[in-house]
């Protein structure tokens, strides 16, 4: 087990009114630690010195809850593709490295403290229509509607979104198109969701715009950084169905 000495440049910001700055810290780690465990070590030393630990969001630490949210050396969730920060391990760094850690940057994700941002805009996008309107008890038998295996898999691939916001963080425009389109695709691809698809896509795009996210310029950075490797095919699908809904249906949201 080899020991590593690292210099961390961490974004410190007391709250949303504070302008924030980088602080440098030395931390001793080893290559078997996860990135967050390395931060745990930093926080432990800060607490021992009676200083404020670095606030960062994390929960499941197995890559599925979507809580962790930090930009490591300019890349959301760090250098390893298809991986959340909590699953990133220190063996991807070298002793002597300087690592810069910043929060997600986007107007629609205001910083709460240090590396913690407010992602409630994502919840509001889902509330705008990211569901199928079925009350408990209304369902027919699960096998009543056969769904082509490939179609179910495509829907699943879109549905694996963990809502972490790395897409927005990676996008130079802070666009939430990958997030929104993943949900639109997941539900729209399935016959159960097809029913209200037309209204859903308009409502969700409208909410997305109102939250202040930027516009998609198809850089593809989102799909590169998405820890679940969700494809921008979903964005094209949303564009298509959005236009289809605006021009082809009688719905206006």
């Amino acid at each position: 087990m080899s020991d590593m000495n690292l210099t961390l440049k961490v974004w410190r910001q007391k709250n949303n009114n504070d302008s924030g700055r980088f602080e440098s810290y030395q931390v001793a780690a080893n290559e078997h630690m996860s990135f967050l465990e390395m931060l745990d070590v930093l926080n432990q030393t800060l607490i021992e010195k009676k200083e404020e630990p670095v606030a960062f969001e994390h929960d499941c630490r197995e890559g599925i809850c979507g809580a962790c949210s930090m930009v490591i050396n300019g890349r959301p969730h760090g250098p390893q593709g298809g991986t959340t920060t909590c699953q990133l391990h220190m063996r991807h760094f070298k002793s002597g490295d300087t690592i810069t850690i910043e929060p997600w940057r986007a107007k629609a994700f205001p910083v709460i403290k240090d590396l913690v941002v407010d992602r409630s805009s994502f919840d509001r996008i889902i509330q705008a229509g990211g569901y199928i309107s079925v009350n408990t008890g209304q369902a027919q038998d699960g096998n009543a509607i056969p769904i082509e295996k490939d179609l179910a898999l495509q829907a699943f691939d879109a549905a694996t979104c963990i809502g972490c916001g790395a897409c927005v963080a990676a996008c130079p425009n802070a666009s939430a198109m990958l997030f929104t389109s993943a949900k639109v695709s997941h539900l729209g691809l399935l016959p159960q969701g097809e029913v209200e698809h037309s209204k859903r896509v308009q409502s969700m795009v409208k909410q997305m715009d109102e939250e202040g996210f930027g516009m998609c310029s198809n850089t593809g950075a989102c799909e590169v950084e998405c820890p679940k490797e969700i494809s921008i095919t979903n964005i094209a699908r949303m564009n298509r169905t959005y236009m289809g809904s605006v021009f082809g249906s009688d719905k206006t949201v």
């Binding site: 980088f22 810069t100 940057r105 986007a106 107007k107 629609a108 202040g212």
Partner: peptide
């Protein structure tokens, strides 16, 4: 919409 940029 992006606000501030990344340092790296």
């Amino acid at each position: 919409a992006k606000g501030s940029r990344y340092a790296v």
